[in-house]
């Protein structure tokens, strides 16, 4: 049965691929990321995308408000790195993140993290006929470079072996540009952390939903939400879906994104397992991403 399904999938992909040799939609989203989640977009060959992402502290709630100037005096997570278009389909990237996620009891996830990413466009949506969706795979391997805390074997950052520093995430992105203004994306994913707290689970399935509404040639609204599927990750236990909304500003070559999200971490290995902030409690933060393209 499984072999038959696989065979059918291959036939379907082959059919769409031959159709996509005609005219395809080359820009479903403007950027390689929405607010939190990746988009189906890959870079053109020999393009370098230098990216800086920033998440400030809680805007409101117990840790926000005037005392932190609505979070602007804090840096919850910071990402800096770049992606490179090895081919028109394959994009590889390397990012350093501060790391910000924590369990509801306050135990921190990975910190000072190096992230290697790979993205491959499997299928592009056809303009007229052809594939109805674009399909892209994205994966990240994250390694914490934080100093180990050897005295406490019960915490994640005990790092008794190097493997405990690692976490991985892989996802398939299925997106469709419905019109010049609207694009939608569905993102099933799987996250694996080599070491977790006792009550937690190493493997975690998730589903992300994302959308972009183009307001004008320059401005676009973006939003996404990611639901982890886990008996442990309930609101009763203090976990919340990572929900972000943002404004994209495209100046041609530069892309600025201003956003609000309850996720603290920027990378998938961080915000999917560790989002414990609640929008309704004012625990969301302002953030921005700057992207600059270069020809190499």
């Amino acid at each position: 049965m499984r072999n038959m399904l696989f065979f059918l999938l291959i036939i379907l992909l082959a059919d769409f691929t031959s159709a996509s040799a005609q005219e395809v939609i080359t820009q479903t989203f403007k950027d390689s990321r929405l607010v939190n989640i990746q988009s189906v977009e890959t870079l053109s060959k020999r393009r370098l995308d230098v990216r800086i992402g920033h998440r400030f502290g809680d805007l409101l709630g117990d840790n926000g408000g005037w005392s932190t100037f609505y979070g602007l005096e804090q840096a919850t997570d910071v990402m800096i790195g770049a992606e490179y278009g090895a081919t028109d389909q394959l994009t590889v990237g390397f990012f350093r993140t501060k790391g910000a996620g924590a369990l509801p009891d306050g135990q921190a996830g990975l910190r000072q993290v190096l992230n290697g990413t790979v993205k491959y466009a499997l299928l592009q949506q056809g303009k007229e006929g052809g594939a109805p969706v674009s399909l892209t795979f994205w994966g990240v391997a994250s390694a914490s470079t934080a100093e180990r805390i050897p005295d406490n074997p019960d915490i994640i950052r005990n790092f008794s072996t190097f493997a405990h520093r690692m976490a991985y995430h892989g996802q398939l992105m299925i997106a469709s540009r419905l019109s010049d203004r609207i694009a939608l994306q569905l993102t099933p994913g799987y996250t694996h952390r080599n070491v977790v707290a006792f009550q937690d689970e190493n493997g975690l399935f998730s589903l992300g939903l994302g959308t972009r509404l183009q307001i004008s040639r320059v401005f676009g609204l973006i939003a996404d939400v990611t639901f982890p599927f886990s008996d442990y990750r309930t609101t009763e236990n203090g976990f919340y879906p990572a929900l972000g909304i943002g404004l994209e500003i495209d100046s041609g070559g530069h892309l600025f994104q201003l956003n609000f999200t309850n996720a603290t971490g920027i990378m998938e290995t961080d915000f999917i397992p560790y989002t414990t902030s609640n929008w309704l409690d004012g625990e969301f933060r302002f953030g921005f991403t700057i992207s600059r393209l270069f020809n190499l």
């Binding site: 010049d180 203004r181 183009q214 004008s216 040639r217 320059v218």
Partner: peptide, 8 residues
């Protein structure tokens, strides 16, 4: 070829 581009 989008209307948004032409409007811009």
């Amino acid at each position: 070829d989008s209307k948004l581009t032409f409007q811009h």
